[in-house]
Write a protein that binds this DNA or RNA. Sequence first.
RNA 1: CGGGAUGUGGCUCAGUCUGGUAGAGCACAGCGUUCGGGACGCUGGGGUCGGAGGUUCAAAUCCUCUCAUCCCGACCA
Length: 477
Amino acid sequence: MAEVKITKRADDFSRWYTDVIAAAELAEHAPVKGCMIIRPNGYAIWEKMQQALDRMFKDTGHQNAYFPMFIPESFLKKEAKHVEGFAPEVAVVTYGGGEKLEEPLIVRPTSETIIWNTYRNWIQSYRDLPLLINQWANVVRWEMRTRLFLRTTEFLWQEGHTAHASYDEAEEETVRMLGVYKTFAQDYMALPVIEGRKTEREKFAGADHTYSIEAMMGDGKALQAGTSHHLGQNFAKAFDVTFQTQQGTRDWVYATSWGLSTRMIGALIMAHGDDNGIVIPPKLATIQAAIIPIARKPEERARVLEVGNRIAAELKQAGIGCKLDERDQYSPGWKFNDWEKRGVPLRIELGPKDIEKNQVVIARRDTGEKTPVSQEGLAQTVSGLLDTVQKSMFDRAVEFRERNTHRVDDYGKFNEMLDAGGFLWAHWCNDDACEERVKSETKATIRCIPLKRDMESGKCIACGAPSDGRVIFARAY
RNA sequence: CGGGAUGUGGCUCAGUCUGGUAGAGCACAGCGUUCGGGACGCUGGGGUCGGAGGUUCAAAUCCUCUCAUCCCGACCA
C-alpha cells in the first residue's frame, strides 16, 4: 500500500477523508463507477458492528431472514410515493441468460416491496403478529455523486421489516429500534447522536413518518447515521396484507422499517479520525492492542518475542483482541506509525529495558499518552484502559458537539454561523416552504425535530411566524 | 446532466507548452549493516505513457475522435 500523507485542513476535509481511508487500508474505488472495494481492515470494523447490532436485534425479539436482490419492476410501482422516491436511482436488469426479460427486474434499493409481497402470505391472523424480521444485505442506489462509505452505489446494511396489529404498537417498535441505534452509536461507536423526527420533506419515500439519529462529524457537518420508519398501512395496502383481528374484523397491517449501513464506517472515520489516521473505539476494534517487540540483537529478539508471546496469550485469555507484530522487515518506529494509521486503540511496546523492569509501555491511540505499566496483572490493566479509552472518546465527541452547537434567532447570523460548521438550534414554523427556502439559500437542512427538546415559543427563523420549539439545522453529508 | 481537472510501473507524480533512446520518489526482491517514533548502502525486477485514428524520418508530447476517473453543484443511507 502506498504511503499517504494525511493533511487535515478545514477547507479540504474531503481530501483528508479519502487519505485516511487509504492510509488505514479500509477501502478503495472499484473499477465500477461509485462502487467500493472494502479491504480487510475496513470489513473487520463492519463485522464488529454487525455482531453488536445483531445481538441487540435478537435481544429485542427479531430474527434474521433473507429475500432476493432482484425485484420485479411492478412491485416497486405499487406504492406511489415509494416509486416516486426510488425510481430515479434504481438499477434495472433487462437481460438474463442472453434473452430480453419479459418483465425487467430492479436491483433492490431497499426491500420493502419484495418483503411485503411475501408478508401477504405469511400473515393471516393477529396471532401471526408482530412479525419481527431483519435482513443483512447489499443494496444498490444509482446516486449521481458518490463517496467512499458515505454514499456508494452499492452498500451493505441491515434492514428491519416488522408487521404489527396496531398503529401504536408499530410506533413503539419504530421508536424502540431508533433507541437501539442510539445505544449502538453511543456505546459502541463512541458517537453521540441526537434522536429526532424527520420533516415531511426529508422522510422516507412511502413512510408515514421517519425518525433518525444525527451525528456531528469532525468538520461540524451533520451525518444521518441511522433511520427508523413508521410505514403506517401504506405498504400493507399496496400489497394487500390484511389480518383478522381478535374481534374478528379485518384490518391492514401496520409496518415499520429501519436501517443502518456501512456509512457508519464513514461516520467513525470522520468523527474520531485525526491527522494520523483512523481511531477505532475499543469495542469495535478486532485488534485492541498491538504488541511491538523492540530488539536489537538476535538473542534479545528471541527473549523479547518469548515474553511478547506470553503477554499476547494472557491478553487473549482475558478476551482482549491483540496481535504481536513480529514482522522483522520493519523498524519499531515504522510499526508505531502503521498501527496508529490503522486506529488500533492501544500499543504495547516491549523491549529489553522493559523486560528488565518487568514492565511494558502502553500508548493510547486517542490521546497519544505513553505510560509504563507492570507486567503483573497486565490483562486487567489493559482491559481497564480499553474501557477508559472508549469512554474518553465518547466524552470528547460530546464535548466537541456541544462546542459546535448554537442557538440562533436571527436569519442574518444564521448563514454566517453555518460557515463555521455545527448544529444550529433555531425556530421553525413547520412550513415546507420555509425549510425549502433555508435549504436553497444556505445549503442547510433541518436534520431533525429532536425528540428531546424544550418547548418554548419563538419565531420561525425564515418567515417569523410563531413556533413552539426549536429544530436542528445543519449542513449535511 | 452542467462547471472544473486528470489519465505515464503497485502508489504519488515529473516529462507534454518547444516531437528526438520513458524518468524520480515510495513500494517490491536479494545481500549486508540496522531496530525505544516512519533506518541506510549496494544490486535487481517491473511501464506497448487510457483507447482508436491521423500528421511526421520520428509522437507520452501535435491534431481528431473516444473511453474512464476525480473534484464542485442538482439527487440521496
